[in-house]
Amino acid sequence: MTEPMLELHGVHKRFGTLEVLRGIDLTVLRGNVVCVIGPSGSGKSTLLRCINLLEPPDEGRIVLEGKEITAGSARGESLDFVRRRVGMVFQQFNLFPHKSALENVCLAQEKVLGRSREEAAKKGRELLGRVGLSDKASEYPERLSGGQQQRVAIARALAMDPHVMLFDEVTSALDPELIKEVLDVLRELAAEGMTMVVVTHEIGFARDVANYVVFMDEGVIVEEGPVRRVIDAPREERTKRFLGLVLQR
């Protein structure tokens, strides 16, 4: 029985006088791959960052695996709960430059989850292998290509055994020829049943891999639905216009 992994109810987020999220309601079922598409400034990244409380919402509720994480009183507890279940991969990779690839993957395992060095390293090597970087374990980020760095970042997030993975435009900072290797990893993850929320410009990828698509514009969800429906037969004007623009590329 699929139960909602993640629920957002009436989420608002303001930065100063600018309201970036203007009432978001969203449900993500376990095992789903939800792609969030839309123009820049639509609030897609902010949405992701609310989910793992990097930006706590100003209004509304977020429920993760049945537990409300936006309840103000249990701040510290909620943060722990969320961050251990939700992994995030960033557009700028954000690898720790003073640590090797393997060390990047192991650091949080040891310090947050308390795994021993050996345990962490074992898991780390396994994950690096899964993303195709076994031979780069002792390399430092500065010697890796963008695509390789991003794959390490994915392995790093996966090492925490998350239940949900958030991907914030993870290929936007990559040279075109490096995009495929990263998307392939995402593809595999999806096939393995990971619940994923992917903010992306790669509509082709969305159509192939996602099973649900959300189109956002100006802080609200304009249209959402099964991927084939939204992408091939959008109902809203704005969605049509956006997709027309994007697919023409």
């Binding site: 793992n52 990097l54 722990d80 961050r83 251990r84 939700v86 992994g87 995030m88 960033f90 700028q92 954000n94 690898l95 720790f96 650091l107 949080a108 310090k111 947050v112 989850l113 970042a153 790093r156 997030a157 925490m160």
Partner: peptide, 20 residues
Amino acid sequence: GQMEAARALGMSHGRAMRHV
């Protein structure tokens, strides 16, 4: 982004400062 990545991985402010 460094602090964000560290926090997203579950590190507390103090741990993030110390290790990252």
